[in-house]
């Protein structure tokens, strides 16, 4: 089951500290080598991109200057995981790094499941946590 993680923050001025970048880098390397992370990336401010709108049946393009948005998307990651529980645990671990390495920062990691085509597939390995 595929998930996209989108990190937003109302404080875009607080950039990542070197310690956070290092910790996140380590996590990313581990997850790629564990075969779970498929892609990740940071996003430049909107000024480096553009917006194409449709309103009242008309198409228009805004390529700056932009009014500062309340929540800014700073980065994303795509994971292949077994189920929603695992996706949540992964997001907690990721945000824990922010808690430790970026004091005073507020933000959200949104976890979104990808839509799949065809008949509903079985994603959940769903075993009662019987260890052993």
């Amino acid at each position: 089951m595929r998930f996209m993680y989108i990190v937003t923050s109302p404080q875009p001025q607080i950039g990542p500290t070197p310690a956070l970048l290092e910790a996140v880098g380590k996590l990313a390397e581990r997850e790629i080598k564990a075969g779970r992370m498929l892609d990740t990336g940071g996003l430049m401010p909107l000024a480096a991109g553009a917006q194409v709108h449709i309103a009242d049946g008309k198409l228009s393009v805004t390529d700056g200057p932009f009014v500062e948005a309340k929540e800014v998307i700073g980065g994303y990651a795509i994971f292949e995981l077994r189920d929603r529980d695992e996706a949540l645990a992964m997001a907690r671990e990721f945000m824990q790094l922010h808690l430790e390495h970026l004091p005073g920062w507020n933000g959200t990691c949104e976890v979104r499941a990808f839509a799949t085509q065809g008949p509903p597939q079985v994603h959940d390995i769903g075993c009662n946590a019987a260890a052993g």
């Binding site: 581990r30 080598k33 564990a34 077994r82 189920d83 529980d85 695992e86 949540l88 645990a89 992964m90 907690r92 671990e93 769903g126 075993c127 009662n128 946590a129």
Partner: peptide, 16 residues
């Protein structure tokens, strides 16, 4: 069962 499921998911993330 709910908490066991959560524990297993958390453990799996840490397992590697």
């Amino acid at each position: 069962a709910e908490i066991e499921r959560l524990i297993l998911a958390t453990w799996r993330v840490e397992q590697p």
